[in-house]
Amino acid sequence: MGRQLIYVIFALCAAMTLTLLLILVAEPVAGAGGVAHLVFEGMRIGGDGSARLESIGSLAYGFQALLLVLIVALATLGISERHRTTRLRAYMLATLIFSLFIFWRMVANHLQFLATGETEYFMGFPTATAWAVYGVWLGSAPLIILYVAGFRQFIYTEEDEAAFNQLLAETTAANQTEDKN
């Protein structure tokens, strides 16, 4: 994936624009964005979770999945084309799969709760929410690890640094000559 990456990103953005438009024109569900709490002023409630997802659930899940792909694609774009090796591409693919797995577990647990009304708790939160709270943070961990551990291999190699220092020296010298003239 070299120069084509920008077309992948464009396709993702086009798909997200289309998905958002479909959501905006979908049949509205009353209270989909929450309604006022009956007892406590200032609080809002979500009400019937299944009803809120009825018209747009699949579209919204699709939007989030596209967003996760977009994040990995954009991070890859941020790596110089020369360093996008097969190993890097495999790592980015694994990162994406990891993010999508977390997303799937969160959605699956939420849907299971909507069906049964039962949930386990993990570190203070209902399981579905725990996937959202801890999982989404963890989903970025591979990118942090790549940046820190692979910095000199993929982000800013010794050769990159030398090339930049040379460019800087040439520019400084040219500016000094210009100033003298």
Binding site: I23, A32, G33, G34, M43, R44, I45, G46, G49, R52, L53, I56, G57, A60, M106, H110, F113, F125, P126, A128, T129, W131, A132
Partner: peptide, 10 residues
């Protein structure tokens, strides 16, 4: 208390 909260998924 579920992942999308009171304000909903979007």
């Amino acid at each position: 208390m579920m992942p999308w909260g009171s304000a909903g998924i979007m």
